[in-house]
């Protein structure tokens, strides 16, 4: 029986690759060599640390867009988890999706779309069962030292959220067409995240490391000079 923090996960599901190496999330912690990592990503992520464990990729965002029309992943991720475990039947999985979404008060057609999404996710995932159960991560109890002034929760490194690459949130990518752009600066002004800067001639430059893909810029551009593409890369 585990509750809350899972110390030795049989499998880990990650909704976006950028979370894999986030210092504050650490989803890979405690994974055994034979445990399984599922990453929602249209393509493989080649990172050294992932070589020891088995990684499965699936483009759940793509499927969610196909079935629901939005990048809402809960039913899809849930279905993948159920299938990976090898413990939960398709029927129970879809029943749970239906029941929980009905509790949220969603309309019948939206629930049905999510059920279809969950079904495809379930059927397209292989069952791996519970692995790594004997893996016991090595933990050691240490003494915490008194750090005096350094142990006060004040943040001195101001403006450091730039370290968090929120670009991975992006499902659609805004792309400026230099031929149509008149350098009016409207996209720059309305970007909620300060992700658009202006070059020396006044043309917008999008910071894709951090652009969350809200597409306010696309909507507000008076020249329709910002087109949209489904995001495939992540930064």
């Amino acid at each position: 029986m585990e509750r809350g923090h899972i110390f030795n996960p049989s499998y880990v599901l990650v909704t976006t690759p950028s979370l894999l190496f986030d210092m504050t999330v650490k989803p890979l912690e405690g994974m055994a060599e034979d445990s399984v990592l599922f990453v929602n990503s249209p393509k493989e992520v080649s990172i050294e640390q992932l070589k020891k464990i088995r990684v499965i990729y699936g483009d759940l965002t793509g499927l969610a867009l196909k079935y629901v029309g939005k990048d809402i992943l809960s039913a899809a991720m849930g279905a993948v988890a159920c299938k990976l475990s090898g413990l939960i039947s398709l029927q129970s999985t879809l029943g749970a999706v239906e029941e929980e979404l009905a509790e949220l008060g969603l309309e019948t057609d939206i629930i049905e779309k999510n059920v279809q999404l969950a079904k495809e996710c379930y059927l397209s995932t292989e069952s791996v069962g519970l692995r790594g159960l004997n893996h016991k991560p090595l933990h050691k109890v240490v003494e915490v030292r008194y750090l005096g002034e350094k142990g006060i929760p004040d943040l001195l490194s101001v403006g450091n959220t730039a370290l968090r690459k929120t670009g991975s949130w992006r499902v659609f990518k805004p792309i400026v067409d230099k031929n149509l752009c008149t350098a009016c600066s409207i996209c720059y002004i309305y970007c909620p995240e300060a992700c658009i800067s202006l070059d020396e001639r006044g043309y917008p430059v999008i910071n894709y490391d951090h652009c969350k893909g809200c597409l306010v810029c696309t909507t507000e551009c008076p020249r329709n000079a910002i087109r949209v593409e489904r995001e495939t890369a992540w930064s």
Binding site: V144, Y146, G151, P153, D154, L155, L156, V158
Partner: peptide, 22 residues
Amino acid sequence: SAPVAKGTPVLIPPLYSFFKYQ
């Protein structure tokens, strides 16, 4: 001259535990 952020949420349990024990 020295910007600082105070009172920010500490949402990471070990970090909260650490500050409290300090």
